[in-house]
Design a protein around this nucleic acid. Structure first.
Length: 271
DNA sequence: ATGTCGTGAAGGTCACGA
């Protein structure tokens, strides 16, 4: 037996509901974490997910922008949504998955980290300052709250591609928001504070290119392949030992009216 | 530097965020 957890920045859950249902049907994750749902909670398409066998929800959305949700066929409990930087802008939700994995439930965190705007200078760009403050608060939280990081899975669109081969050109993107030194250092600090293990890179050597996002602005995304690894799955040590594998569904970028991000899944063994 | 999406509030297109 195993537990399969997926994460996907879907860029509007209502517009792309058919794609979400297709993904669930074809790949059968137990739990799907969504970002950029762009959907108020009372308009979330729970009925459609229920019909597909996913009847448990943890939702934190708002009108227009951002928004996160956990859609599950397993019961969820202890749902929490943390407001970072004193702003309730629907960027984090967590829940416990009541599935026996080594004798205790799994704590799942679903994040949508601020994109950070264009200019990588917190002095002139308040969006970049917000991103850095958000990352620092994540670090403090996981450093100081062992319960929140214990037996945990952290997923989401972290909007940072940390390694050289997490972007199509390390040199071209050195000063582009998502791959700057200061962001990469901040992400590393969070990882260390929470003792998180990077599950995607556990299966793919660091010298191989690995992407989860391709810009809409490139009409030939597949041939030019100028991607970035912005979406992540992190595991606490107790769960890293249970990892079976990960899958990045690159083909979903070529689906009709796609998101610019593709679904990412991790499989954990319960044996 | 360019490019393309989705949403909301207007108002029959544009601003904004990404």
């Amino acid at each position: 037996m195993s537990l399969k957890i997926a994460t996907w920045n879907i860029n509007s859950v209502r517009l792309r509901l058919p794609l979400a249902l297709r993904y669930l049907s074809e790949h059968q994750p137990d739990v799907l974490c969504l970002q950029e749902t762009k959907c108020p909670d009372d308009a979330f398409p729970t009925r459609d997910f229920q019909r597909a066998g996913y009847g448990h929800f943890a939702i934190y959305g708002q009108k227009g922008h951002h928004g996160v949700a956990i859609v599950s066929r397993l019961p969820l409990s202890a749902v929490g949504a943390r407001k970072f930087c004193g702003i309730g802008d629907a960027r984090h939700i967590s829940a416990e998955i009541d599935e026996d994995l080594g004798g205790r439930p799994v704590r799942l965190h679903n994040f949508y980290v601020p994109a950070g705007g264009e200019e990588p200078d917190p002095e002139v760009n308040p969006k970049f300052a917000h991103k850095l403050a958000f990352l620092e608060e994540m670090q403090d939280w996981f450093a100081n709250d062992p319960v929140m990081r214990d037996h945990g899975v952290l997923v989401g669109d972290l909007n940072i591609a940390p390694l050289e081969h997490d972007v199509w050109s390390h040199k071209a993107l050195a000063k582009v928001v998502s791959h700057t030194e200061v962001e990469i250092a901040a992400l590393k600090n969070i990882q260390e504070a929470g003792m998180w293990v990077d599950a995607l890179r556990a299966n793919v050597p660091e010298d191989q290119k690995l992407y989860t996002w391709w810009s809409y602005r490139s009409p030939d995304w597949e041939s030019s392949d100028k991607g970035r690894r912005l979406d992540h799955v992190w595991l606490s040590p107790s769960l890293a030992a249970r990892q079976v594998g990960t899958t990045i569904l690159r083909e979903a970028r070529g689906w009709e009216r796609p998101s610019d991000h593709v679904p990412v899944m991790v499989e954990l063994t319960s044996a």
